[in-house]
Design a protein around this nucleic acid. Structure first.
Length: 756
DNA sequence: GCTACACCGGTTTTT
DNA sequence: CCGGTGTAGC
């Protein structure tokens, strides 16, 4: 810290180098004080600006621990920390308050939460836990889950919370009948969380905001933070913006960095209007725009700009770069999703062979996780390594959640969600009947279900004192409950002395969890995979062996709840093709990008097509995807797509229609009409309308007597399966996946295929 | 109380 | 195609 001060007095020793920044970047970095708004387009060096700004501030004399930098994802936080430390050294870098909104809130709540009645050892309920609670509330209120789906209710409650609506206000408001029901569910929900000493993600933010109503707390932090920086500001919710304001209220030094064009999380209560509010609330704010792109070729940017330009209510801005000698992005019409996948595999294979590409250079971007399947299949066939980001996350796996629930009961026996999850896992003869009895008893006597279990088992849990009549359960159930309660009590005792991993191992042994997994699994492979996950979890807990046994459990459970980021546990080899959703791809970049499923009903997604606002967001999503590409961009759509079991035809995405023809290199099956109002294509021989009659049947070429799925044989290529057919005049192009030689496209009349 | 199986319906994005 | 729920039979 003192070193930094002396740096200030001797500017020539500055180590944060500003020379390689452009003018706009430098302006943002060296903005001395007061509110600052940085509009940072994709690839404009946003992270660099933030890290340099932090570095610069420190050199100007601000102690690192008086700087608070907030991100949305753990990944972003980690990257920023790494880059910051390489810029200004680990010692100073590690002192900066840097983390996600949620992480920072937890830190503040752990320190001061008790002042507003937040339990010292609160646990964090993730979305799965939340869902369980809502489900039980729906049941309790005897609602029809079809009419009032827990999912919809939870999302309504969560939205209200992130908008900063209190439970009381929500109940008092004259909303729809659905809202009324949601209000009642919310009440039950809140009670359950409170009984479990739990906060959900929204609570973490809300309670922290409440914390700042406390004069003492407010003073501490107003004096603490000299500078507050918020990344991805377009993704902030109402409550998050309020937090940012509260944190920066003392100094008035709030820097927000964002890009309205990349706002893709409104469904998670991100409110793009916060950018306007920021300007409204900070009249004197300085605005800096970063439009120079250092990632993509101009050819890619032109396409992306064309798409985002059509967004309504948008202030016109365009990304530019010096990198002008790139190839035109390619638009490829595939026949089906497997054909789409083949295009990618073939392209990657080609690149690998001529050395122009490494697997890790390429990424496949899609709207929905389900789309990854076809790509995976093809990549496997071609022997191309890939890593699937997201999909089923490690901490969402059943076996992992089971064990986490065990640990949660160990930590807090009153946690009803965790209790319900594991009390009969592995099955130990405690069924619905017994559970009902326990629940009833616990409600009646204001005890936890765990205490009910202990009482039923004849174990005198602390608070009972022998005054109460134990819940009437069968002898068998009582014996099982005793076993369970003893197991938990022993584990709790063990957890105060021994490392977490050993606690976990004891539980596994005593419950014979592995045997249960095997019994539960349909195949040996499944059992093996699930056991591997268990082992992996133990490995993770071993990272906590350096912490005192008592505290390790707390720390571990907290981390697990807050880490939804998948790249903490890479799903594959590092040098592999990345398969990732458009949402998750935000903030990443790849030399070669394949965007697949550029079709109506997929992008824009079916569920977003009715609402203009959501449609805009789909457009931005498209823009985000395109701007991930550094060198090559491939846009793909399939003529025919199997989705949810059925096969159908989607027209090409309307966003494609916004791209001027000359900006793309088109590889179309047929000269096709794209989107809605497109200029007439030249030399068009077949219109989309002509294809509709084939739908949902595949295009077939009856004259060649082949259909999809036929097993055929070829003189040179050997045996294979027809995977696609397309008419070319009276002939047909037959795509065959050969067992030995891979996928080939052949002209039926020339190939001389025989049925196998 | 447990398991196996049939059915149903939903099916985006995630800190 | 998946998972969650409901039912019947053990």
């Amino acid at each position: 810290m003192l070193a930094a001060m002396s740096d200030f007095s001797a500017p020539h020793t500055l180590s944060v180098d500003l020379d390689h920044l452009n003018q706009a970047q430098r302006a943002a970095v060296t903005h001395p004080h007061g509110p600052l708004l940085v509009i940072a387009g994709p690839g404009s060096g946003k992270t660099r600006v933030i890290t340099h700004r932090i570095g610069w501030l420190i050199e100007q004399g601000t102690p690192p621990w008086r700087i608070l930098a907030v991100t949305f994802t753990n990944r972003a936080a980690r990257e920023m920390r790494t880059r910051l430390e390489s810029l200004i050294g680990q010692e100073q870098g590690s002192d900066v308050w840097l983390g996600t909104f949620h992480r920072i809130c937890v830190r503040m709540l752990r320190a001061h939460g008790q002042e507003i009645g937040v339990p010292r050892n609160f646990v964090i309920f993730d979305s799965d836990d939340q869902m369980q609670v809502v489900r039980s509330a729906v049941k309790e209120l005897q609602l029809d889950p079809k009419q009032y789906s827990p999912r919809a209710l939870l999302s309504r409650i969560s939205r209200a919370k992130s908008e900063g609506t209190s439970q009381q206000d929500f109940l008092a408001a004259t909303g729809s009948y659905f809202d009324e029901v949601a209000g009642r569910v919310w009440e039950r929900y809140a009670v359950q969380l409170s009984e479990a000493s739990a906060l959900d993600f929204d609570d973490l933010l809300l309670k922290t905001l409440d914390l700042f109503d406390q004069e003492t707390v407010r003073q501490i932090y107003e004096e603490r933070f000299d500078h507050v920086l918020v990344d991805e500001f377009q993704d902030t919710s109402t409550v998050q913006y309020q937090l940012a304001r509260a944190w920066s209220a003392g100094s008035g030094n709030l820097t927000v960095v964002g890009d309205p064009d990349q706002s893709i999380y409104s469904w998670r209560s991100a409110d793009i209007r916060n950018l306007n509010y920021f300007v409204r609330d900070h009249r004197e704010a300085t605005e800096v725009q970063l439009n120079d792109n250092y990632r993509s070729t101009q050819q890619i940017l032109d396409v992306a700009n064309a798409v985002i330009d059509r967004a309504a209510d948008r202030i016109k801005r365009s990304l530019v770069t010096d990198n002008r000698d790139g190839a035109l992005p390619r638009l490829h019409e595939a026949y089906s999703e497997s054909d789409e996948a083949e295009y990618i595999s073939n392209h990657v294979e080609l690149g690998l062979r001529d050395g122009s590409l490494r697997p890790g250079d390429a990424a496949v971007l899609y709207r929905t996780n389900a789309q990854s399947r076809a790509i995976e299949e093809s990549l496997v066939q071609h022997g191309i390594p890939y890593r699937l980001v997201g999909a089923t996350r490690f901490y969402d796996r059943r076996e992992v959640r089971d064990l986490l629930a065990y640990l949660r009961v160990v930590r807090n026996a009153a946690d009803p969600v965790a209790f319900a999850r594991v009390v009969n896992v592995p099955t130990r003869g405690i069924g619905a009947k017994t559970l009902d009895t326990l629940t009833e008893w616990s409600d009646l006597n204001a005890r936890s279900t765990f205490q009910a279990a202990a009482a039923a088992a004849g174990i005198d849990a602390d608070a009972l004192g022998g005054y109460l009549v134990p819940p009437p359960v069968s002898r068998r159930a009582a014996a099982s409950l005793k076993e369970f309660v003893t197991l938990i009590d022993d584990a709790r005792e063990q957890s105060s002395r021994e490392p977490l991993s050993d606690v976990l191992r004891s539980i596994l042994v005593k419950t014979q969890y592995r045997e249960w997994l095997v019994r539960q699994s349909d195949t040996e492979t499944e059992a093996a995979t699930r056991w591997e996950n268990v082992q992996e979890l133990i490995t993770v807990t071993e990272n906590y062996s350096g912490i005192a046994p008592g505290a390790a459990l707390d720390a571990f459970l907290e981390d697990v709840a807050l880490v939804a980021d998948v790249d903490d546990l890479p799903d594959g080899p590092p040098d592999a093709v990345t398969l990732i959703t458009l949402h998750q791809a935000k903030g990443l970049e790849f030399p070669v990008v394949f965007m697949i499923g550029l079709e109506e009903y997929l992008l824009p997604h079916q569920l977003s097509m009715d609402d203009p606002k959501q449609l805009q967001e789909e457009r931005r999503l498209c823009y985000v995807g395109m701007t991930r590409a550094m060198r090559e961009l491939h846009l793909l759509y399939a003529f025919r797509r199997a989705y949810q079991g059925r096969s159908g035809h989607n027209p090409p995405s309307r966003f494609l229609a916004d791209i001027p023809e000359e900006l793309l290199q088109r590889h179309l099956r047929q000269q096709a009409r794209v989107g809605e109002d497109v200029r007439p294509a030249r030399n068009r021989t077949v219109r989309w309308d002509d294809f509709d009659s084939f739908d949902p049947e595949p295009v077939s070429a009856p004259s060649v007597g082949l259909k999809e799925g036929d097993e055929v044989s070829h003189e040179i290529f050997g045996d294979g399966v027809v995977i696609a057919l397309r008419a070319i005049g009276r002939d047909a192009e037959v795509t065959v996946r050969f067992a030995d030689t891979g996928v080939k496209r052949l002209l039926a009349s020339m190939a001389n295929l025989t049925r196998a």
